[in-house]
Design a protein around this nucleic acid. Structure first.
Lengths: 244, 244
DNA sequence: ACCTGAACACCGTTCAAGT
DNA sequence: ACCTGAACACCGTTCAAGT
């Protein structure tokens, strides 16, 4: 048989790494993290485990690839536009919100971001987010020596906040409606009021705020808090003196 | 260390939930997260799986309990002293460093904090940390309506930063020496310089800082950045008039 | 080169049975 | 009440064999 032409082959869809990752994301979105198994994958793709392992090294690598593609998509619109939207602050908020929304849309993403953060702190996922935040930080008036610290603080906050604000379900199942979310917060808030006043005076004091708070709004408030710190430590005064 | 008679034949040590959790922490510290299995537990405790499951509901619950006890220990000295150490800022830094050091000491803790954060965002672990940070926040001069947001921002940052700064090993194994850490950072820094300049201009620009940065120092710098933001948004001045 | 599918070595969890 | 230990239903991963 003659050598097969490289691309123009249409026939039965070939099994590619890309297609496996894509299917993994679908599976994660549809059934939750616990349901992503090689057997579920082989079922959807109509193959055997050997075929999967021919294209991907192992399950962890697949999870990382799935996370990375979703993060890349979430951040993509930010990296392209030739003209910036507005101030660097706006750009930072936009990147942060892109991640926030992605976590809302993909219930499994929060846990995976956390996993990637701890297990592969400088893997592609973290790198991508770092770059997305760091780029506008450069034009924020911060001396170059503080770029890393400033970006790091923002990234840490963003990842910490997005992971907690996710639609957590306890197990790896798929999250419920917004009403469920409200009920969840209500239950939590009520539980807080029953805590021992000696052990948890603060929690009890903020139980009400907790129930009424808007995740997205508060997420942005946190960003602004950090940005206010940046401005305070590095006043945007005209032509800052010796950065030395 | 005081080696207690592990397998005292005379009086059979009773199996308690406490002892199981304790053994789980030992196992996690010694061999890493991947090694905590019910079979390893039954081996160390000289029982069968049924005995374990009589005391704990399941593996996740055990992991949560192990995490909670370690966090409780890390934060305990802070909650006890009748006389406060110093300023609320100092107190916040102390709590944050307590967690930072605990993560350094227990290599598995970072990943577990992240898991608890996402899977049980208002479970005992998060609650404990929230209380530890929130208490000094009250005396920071922040109006009560902003307590929750302020504390939330600090907690998010702290958890995000501690989890990333942990001695990650990729898999769930136990981390190596400090030299390994240095080599790890060096390798990462070198890899950064090889990135595509078009895709990752920022990362490349900070590659050097990354290699030379001190985790603990930078962690504190981030705390101070957030605290500076708090001060900026809520000036400690004697009831400053309307700023907005 | 790419895929098949049986097989292996685990794993968490259950439960009838013992004390 | 507390514990035993065999058994069940999974899981990720491998590999000789096919095309």
């Amino acid at each position: 048989m003659a050598m097969r032409t490289r691309q123009s082959q249409r026939r039965r869809q070939v099994l590619t790494r890309e297609r496996i990752v894509e299917t993994a994301v679908e599976l994660l979105d549809a059934v939750g993290e616990g349901a992503l198994t090689v057997r579920a994958l082989t079922g959807r793709l109509a193959t055997g485990p050997g075929a999967i392992y021919w294209h991907i090294g192992n399950m962890d690598e697949l999870l990382e690839a799935a996370t990375d593609t979703v993060v890349a998509t979430a951040l993509a619109p930010r990296t392209q536009p030739a003209e910036a939207a507005g101030t660097p602050q706006d750009e930072i908020r936009a990147v942060a919100l892109g991640l926030f929304d992605a976590v809302t849309e993909h219930a499994w993403l929060a846990a995976q971001l956390a996993v990637q953060l701890t297990r592969k702190p400088w893997g592609p996922v973290t790198l991508r987010i770092f770059e997305g935040i760091g780029r506008p930080v450069r034009t924020l008036g911060v001396p170059q020596g503080d770029w890393f610290t400033t970006t790091s603080t923002l990234v840490h906050y963003i990842l910490g906040a997005t992971t907690q604000n996710s639609q957590a379900t306890g197990d790896g199942s798929v999250p419920g409606s917004e009403a469920d979310r409200a009920e969840f917060l209500d239950t939590a808030s009520r539980a807080w009021r029953d805590l021992d006043p000696d052990d948890y005076p603060f929690i009890r004091a903020v139980a009400n705020q907790m129930r009424e708070h808007d995740d997205r709004e508060q997420f942005l408030a946190g960003i602004d808090l950090v940005l206010a710190g940046v401005t305070a430590l590095h006043p945007p005064a005209t032509s800052s003196p010796a950065d030395s």
